[in-house]
């Protein structure tokens, strides 16, 4: 491999440090023996144990997981359908508007998405709780799925589907036995992306949740306001781990889908 110039080494180090030093610090201090966050008291995993006994956190973790799994599944189905329409339906009236509207949430400030959803739920008289968070998360993560899936569909050879039809498949059969298996890596990548987005969302969840449904990021946020405890560090470390695994898996799946 080519040796990097001094400039490249410096910029790489600076960027990496800027991005990951805080996170690294957090991870290190999650293994701190001392109760004081800023004073190193030796290595220990006791805060992780402590975490397991904290009912509030466990509840929040369960809610978060449930919300993430269900919302990302809904988002994947809807996002894939949207991608199919965008890529396949050709030119129809309002196509540009439709595609713009699907991709708009990508750049929409979360506060606005959260607020508008809150207003909608109030207007519709829906009781806020885990269900409303699921709906909200499905709404905003759907567009990410649709971006990932449609980029795969663009390169999909339509004659594969025609071949399936020619060999005796109904349109449904052709989709499920040929199209879906081939675009599966992209669909999985989209699901993982939606899953991680839901996992670490604070703003939209805060707007759309109600009593009894508190997600982990919300719990952490409220706990931190009372002071940072090593327990929070431990919890955050676990979350970081989960999100990293999700993102890496999504990008691996995406790479596979680009190859075939």
């Amino acid at each position: 491999m080519r040796r990097m110039s001094l400039f490249n080494v410096t910029s790489l180090t600076l960027v990496a440090a800027f991005l990951y030093l805080p996170i690294l610090l957090l991870i290190i201090y999650s293994f701190n023996e001392s109760k004081l966050v800023t004073v190193w008291g030796g290595f220990s995993t006791k805060w992780y144990g402590e975490l397991l006994r904290n009912e509030q956190f466990l509840d929040a973790a369960w809610v978060t997981l449930k919300v993430a799994v269900i919302s990302s599944t809904i988002a994947t189905v809807l996002g894939t359908m949207a991608a199919l329409v965008l890529v396949r339906a050709g030119r129809f009236i309002g196509r540009t508007l439709f595609s713009g509207m699907i991709y708009a949430p990508l750049v929409m400030p979360e506060v606005i998405t959260g607020l508008s959803l809150l207003l909608l739920f109030i207007a519709a008289g829906v009781d806020r709780g885990a269900t409303t968070i699921i709906l909200a998360h499905a709404t905003f993560s759907m567009c990410y799925v649709s971006v990932v899936v449609s980029s795969r569909l663009v390169t999909f050879d339509r004659s594969l589907e025609e071949a399936a039809r020619d060999l005796g498949c109904t349109p449904w059969d052709a989709f499920f036995s040929v199209t879906l298996p081939i675009i599966a890596p992209a669909v999985i990548a989209g699901w993982l992306l939606a899953f991680t987005l839901s996992l670490d969302d604070l703003v939209i969840a805060s707007f759309t949740s109600g009593p009894g449904a508190t997600t982990l990021p919300m719990r952490i946020y409220s706990a931190v306001r009372l002071g940072v405890s090593p327990e929070i560090n431990a919890l955050s470390t676990i979350l970081i781990g989960l999100v990293s695994i999700g993102v890496i898996a999504a990008s691996l799946a995406g790479k596979r889908s680009a190859r075939t």
Partner: peptide, 12 residues
């Protein structure tokens, strides 16, 4: 039945 120009073999 049809044999496609791109062959359209199912890659999976």
């Amino acid at each position: 039945n049809m044999m496609f120009q791109s062959y359209a073999l199912f890659p999976h």
